[in-house]
Design a protein around this nucleic acid. Structure first.
Lengths: 197, 197
DNA sequence: TTTATTATTGAACAGATTATTCATCATTAT
DNA sequence: ATAATGATGAATAATCTGTTCAATAATAAA
């Protein structure tokens, strides 16, 4: 049985539904959207919706999985690159860049109403990736940590996503390089590290 | 006109509604709760709900305002105390302590479904308070910052709330002093600051 | 205590939305 | 070509919201 080969109509319907949902979220926010609005926008029958998704939330989560996957792949690509430890801000810049290029989507995830579960997904991805980076670094350098890796990764993930949210909400006035630089300084050196002379 | 003297029935109804909402959120989450369920739990007529609140969200936000206010007052009390700069972790410990003592409520706010606006409220309070602390410190010490105070305060607020959320969700296994200590090290000295020998 | 005021209540209501069934039509894969 | 599968519209029951209204109960003030 070739379950990986899908009926073209299935993919078409799902694509239209996801597109319609994204459009509507950006126009009027997630909460007040109805299934009827989604199918009307997608030009599909309302019955078709329930043929593919249990409810609005399932559609949202499935739609956002692809985004998280894309970000992860970009980071992994960089990770396998040459000088990953030369520039500690490079991976972080990928995140900020991905966010700025998909600002609309990130608004849905981060600013969004009921997108809490989506944010959890993203947090898990970031924390896992951070943990792998940290463990690699420790193995390579031989240094020890005063806190568990788990705690460090969680701190990194929460501060990154929080800071990212804050930056996006204000309309990204700081510019990519500038905000990346400030965040890297803060997360690496802490609040003491930004004290001048 | 004495608008501060309320009819006893008003306060009673609102108290019952808030209590019912909190109970239901902890039992089954915010999203699927109906007004009927709230009033049934509160043993009040459904009409009474709309007499006091526009909808479910208004009830939630009003209910949580008091919590944020309480936290703010505790921090302000400490702020006016003697040696506020001796121990940089003291104010932070107040936050973690307040969270652990009101873990149920914080779960509603931080873990919660549609409580995004509530979290915004909390974030604003924390960032404002942090900014006041930082500005006082700068004025006193004469040092300069390499990043805007606004950015620093935002970084602090987001990382604190994110880290706090992470700690709460795992059931606070680390203990108050331990988690406060680790967070202070991280937020003050950054990831470099936790590197051992 | 009496009285005027105000809160509560249940019933009833229209409107929106959800989630499902089913027969029919359209498209697809082989 | 044709069997299988997806899409569709209509119909339906059920739930929830938000509002009105008249009757009732509790309260504050005299």
């Amino acid at each position: 049985m070739k379950t990986n080969v899908q009926d073209r109509r299935i993919e078409r319907s799902r694509r239209l539904l996801r597109k319609a949902l994204m459009e509507l979220i950006l126009e009027k926010g997630y909460d007040t959207i109805t299934v009827e609005e989604i199918t009307a926008r997608a030009d599909l029958g309302r019955t078709t919706f329930y043929l593919h998704y249990k409810d609005k939330e399932e559609l949202l989560l499935k739609s956002l999985e692809a985004v998280a996957q894309e970000l992860l792949e970009q980071i992994d690509a960089h990770r396998n690159g040459a000088d990953q430890y030369r520039e500690p801000g490079a991976a972080i810049r990928i995140v900020f860049q991905h966010a700025s290029e998909n600002a609309d989507l990130y608004h849905i995830i981060l600013k969004g109403g009921a997108a809490v579960k989506a944010l959890d997904q993203l947090h898990a991805v970031v924390a896992e990736t951070a943990a792998r980076f940290i463990e690699d670094y420790l193995k390579m350098s031989g240094v020890q940590l005063d806190v568990p890796v788990e705690v460090l990764a969680a701190y990194f993930a929460t501060s990154l996503l929080g800071f990212l949210t804050w930056w996006l909400r204000r309309g990204m006035p700081e510019g990519l390089e500038e905000i990346t630089g400030m965040y890297v300084r803060l997360v690496m050196g802490g609040m003491v590290g930004v004290l001048g002379p």
